[in-house]
């Protein structure tokens, strides 16, 4: 493919996507290095969710390259395949299996063979059980392991979903508004959790909450009308006049 993509984890170049004449993504280019954590901010309709959809195979772009690890063309793969490549995604609205227990939610997400026959005859072993316990501890849900996920609070569901993401052992995590609907304390803890994760894995966080983004302390990309408006540290982009105009109105 493209030489420029070499050595990158995620490489988007010249991506376009139109819905019924509405340009959701407009010549978007974004590069993520292995092990990097990146925050993406932008006003509503900036194309953040559509970008996630494109990376995870939910939406096919009209034009442009989307490469994983410099060579795998993500536009040709479906969601399941992309997930198995090692890209995990957390939705904006927490999405967990509400009629399963917290434990089962994690168990279903654990890295394992994903075919019907494999799951039909699957039996949970000791190693898996330990891993589940570990993840439940990490996400502070260990005492709620037998609760149905439906009984969890909003913030707990967010964490459960992050736990499920970790269980997948992905190389890249796409996290859509992890702090939405959380208390300040929860938000701060979430930031700590994400930073911990970022030590071993690459993370892309989409967020509105500036305090949260500041807590993360990473490179920020500002999206506007489907393309990158500015990139840099939070302080740098927040003093960028174009960004100020977009956020404060004209």
């Amino acid at each position: 493919m493209t030489d420029k993509a070499e050595g990158t984890l995620l490489y988007l170049d010249g991506v376009n996507k139109t819905f019924d004449g509405f340009r959701a993504i407009n010549n978007l280019s974004l590069v993520l290095a292995p092990g990097e954590m990146r925050a993406i901010i932008g006003p509503n309709g900036a194309g953040k969710t559509t970008m996630m959809d494109i990376i995870t195979g939910k939406t096919k772009p009209d034009t442009g390259d989307v490469l994983f690890e410099g060579s795998t063309d993500l536009t040709r793969l479906d969601e399941a395949k992309i997930a198995n490549l090692g890209i995990g995604r957390k939705f904006q609205k927490p999405t967990v299996f509400e009629s399963h227990t917290v434990e089962d939610n994690i168990a279903l997400a654990l890295k394992a063979r994903r075919g019907p026959w494999a799951t039909l005859f699957h039996r949970t072993g000791k190693a898996e059980q330990d891993r589940i316990d570990e993840l439940l501890t990490t996400t502070r849900l260990i005492d709620k392991r037998r609760f149905l996920a439906a009984r969890l609070s909003h913030g707990q569901k967010q964490w459960l979903e992050i736990g499920m993401l970790l269980a997948q052992e992905p190389r890249l995590l796409l996290v859509d508004e992890p702090a939405a609907g959380m208390t300040d304390a929860e938000t701060a803890e979430t930031a700590i959790l994400l930073k911990e994760i970022a030590r071993t894995q690459s993370v892309v966080v989409v967020e509105h909450d500036m305090t949260f983004v500041r807590d993360l302390g990473v490179k920020v990309t500002v999206l506007h009308e489907g393309s990158v408006l500015a990139e840099g540290t939070l302080d740098a982009v927040s003093s960028n006049p174009k960004v100020v105009e977009v956020y404060l109105g004209r």
Binding site: T95, F97, H100, L108, Q168
Partner: peptide, 18 residues
């Protein structure tokens, strides 16, 4: 359990790689 997952949150199941 995967089947129930599909019933309750099909896209979540998909993004888990099933």
């Amino acid at each position: 359990k995967v089947l129930v997952g599909v019933r309750d949150a099909e896209s979540r199941t998909r993004f888990l790689g099933y």
